[in-house]
Design a protein around this nucleic acid. Structure first.
Lengths: 132, 132
DNA sequence: ATAATAATGATAATCGTTACTATTATAATA
DNA sequence: TATTATAATAGTAACGATTATCATTATTAT
């Protein structure tokens, strides 16, 4: 079997994803990490992100437009996508807990999980428009 | 400005999508339509699907795995994805109506819409396993 | 230190989708 | 009905995101 070996690049990918709140794509993460590792390969970023998803250390999702985003938070939560600034906000876990049974009840089969995305304009962007 | 012209291919794409319940991808639809139009181009399928989305006659969505699916039903509804057979089931509109206000309340901003996907195993696939 | 092998950077290949172009189909007009 | 204008097509090339390949480098065990 295959044992995992430490790599500075993988560690950097993890900490970088942990410190960001915007749920970056592989390419966005790649651009960030290049500041620390100027010649890291885009393939390395993809390979490690997929590995971390397999290990359950991170999760990936698409938010309607088809682009794949990565998230360091693995506990169940929802997302709110701002159509103006594109930022993807986390939503409180309590919402998931409250809606879980209610939502899963009328479905024709066995439910393992569900995901919810909200689309709109975040408070920051709404405020900016008010002041103009 | 540009006026729309009739095309048998576009009509076929519409009726084909209308008669299917599995929310096909562009490629799956392409394979279906080739039975009627053996030399229709994949580009034609993509072009018309995108046009129909623009016109609001159909909608498109991704269900987590990144693949883009098309749906002839444009009224708000949820989807249930079976991890075994891959079929994407429609869920009753009443669910949306019931959960709408409840879900949108605690979000930090203005909500335009939301989407919900359920993942699990549909009744058919559960039954099949029971009989083995 | 040496050996074994996992991980890397660089690049080629793949896949889904879009753009391009000469030709065909549709619709308006004479 | 014939003519003209142009939207739509089939076929193919191009594109962007992702994955695979491979020689070299880094990590770990002996």
């Amino acid at each position: 079997m295959k044992t995992l070996k430490y790599s500075r690049q993988r560690e950097s990918i993890k900490t970088c994803l942990m410190n960001r709140t915007d749920h970056p794509t592989a390419d966005a993460l790649y651009l960030s990490i290049r500041e620390e590792f100027p010649n890291i390969s885009l393939g390395t970023v993809y390979r490690n992100l997929n590995l971390l998803v397999e290990l359950g250390e991170i999760i990936s999702f698409t938010c309607g437009d088809g682009s794949v985003h990565f998230d360091y938070t693995t506990t169940p939560h929802y997302h709110f996508v701002c159509k103006t600034c594109g930022h993807i906000h986390d939503l409180p876990v309590s919402m998931v807990r409250e809606t879980n049974e209610f939502l899963t009840e009328p479905v024709p089969g066995r439910i393992d999980s569900h995901s919810v995305f909200f689309y709109g304009e975040c408070a920051d962007c709404v405020d900016k428009k008010m002041t103009h």
